[in-house]
């Protein structure tokens, strides 16, 4: 029995390693002199920085305008998250709580949109934004991703489960519709706000295909496209490329570490029991 458990644990660790190894390779490789990255790639030394330095990071900052890409990505992602929370939150609330003509049809449409992958509409969307003259702008990278069927659906199902009496109590206690939404609904929607913010953030931060299609210059280029361009920039320095990768991932990890406790707390309080 004990042997079986040990074996299972070993198998799980091996499995986990398959996922963790590339990440470790990236981090360790970014600290190594460029020539050792590839020569040690096949051995365990790939995961051990013998002579660690930050030279690769300095090289990246010297060779390309990394801060520019970072700000682009932060702006595009931040704006999409902020606008998305407002638009999708209000849409979900309207679908769940307000009674209006066409509500059922709108809900069915939102659910139907869930199954359409972005790649399927990328080309028609590309023609549309070209017609509008939006290529090479921030707008083209933000606007199409603000309204999101999945986010609307998350908000919708959350608001359905929120006890209606809370809003009614607020109304009787003297709050109008908007104050009720701001003072009672939103504070109790923190779990779903966090979930939508995180998923939107991750989607936008890693978005590659669309910005590749619609941006040509460096001015509005986000990090993933910049990384791809960096890989083709001679001379090909693997240590620099890995350092670029680490620099791209770092803000996400930082945000995760920052918000993880709040996110968990939010999830625990998710069921209003009052």
């Amino acid at each position: 029995m004990r042997g079986g458990r040990a074996l299972a644990a070993l198998a799980l660790w091996a499995f986990a390693l398959v996922y963790l190894a590339p990440v470790a390779f990236m981090v360790v490789g970014s600290l190594k002199p460029d020539e050792r990255v590839l020569t040690e790639a096949g051995s365990l030394a790939a995961l051990w920085p013998a002579e660690a330095s930050l030279q690769n990071f300095r090289d990246v900052l010297r060779r390309v305008d990394f801060p520019r890409y970072l700000l682009n990505s932060l702006w595009i992602t931040g704006a999409t998250v902020a606008l998305g929370l407002v638009v999708n939150g209000l849409a979900g609330y309207a679908l769940a709580r307000l009674r209006w003509r066409g509500r059922r049809a709108a809900l069915a449409l939102v659910l139907a949109l869930l199954v359409i992958p972005f790649e399927a509409i990328a080309v028609p969307l590309f023609y549309l934004v070209s017609l509008l003259g939006w290529r090479d702008t921030y707008t083209v990278q933000i606007l199409p991703f603000v309204a999101n069927a999945f986010a609307v659906y998350l908000f919708y199902s959350f608001f359905l489960d929120l006890p209606r009496e809370l809003e009614e109590a607020a109304r009787v206690d003297g709050a109008g519709v908007l104050r009720t939404f701001c003072s009672v609904v939103l504070p109790n929607a923190r779990p779903v706000l966090a979930t939508v913010a995180v998923t939107t953030f991750l989607f936008q931060w890693g978005s590659f295909l669309w910005p590749l299609l619609v941006t040509t210059g460096e001015a509005v280029r986000p990090l993933p496209v910049a990384l791809a361009a960096f890989q083709t920039l001679p001379p090909r320095q693997w240590g620099d490329i890995l350092a670029f990768g680490v620099m791209m991932v770092a803000p996400v990890v930082l945000l995760y570490l920052l918000f993880q406790p709040a996110f968990l707390r939010g999830a625990r309080l998710a069921g209003p029991k009052g």
């Binding site: 006890p163 009496e165 809370l166 009614e168 607020a170 206690d173 003297g174 109790n188 029991k273 009052g274």
Partner: peptide, 16 residues
């Protein structure tokens, strides 16, 4: 909000 009534709900509806 314009009626000056107060209400106690069956499940109390306290703000969590």
């Amino acid at each position: 909000q314009a009626r000056d009534v107060a209400m106690v709900f069956q499940n109390y509806a306290l703000y969590p």
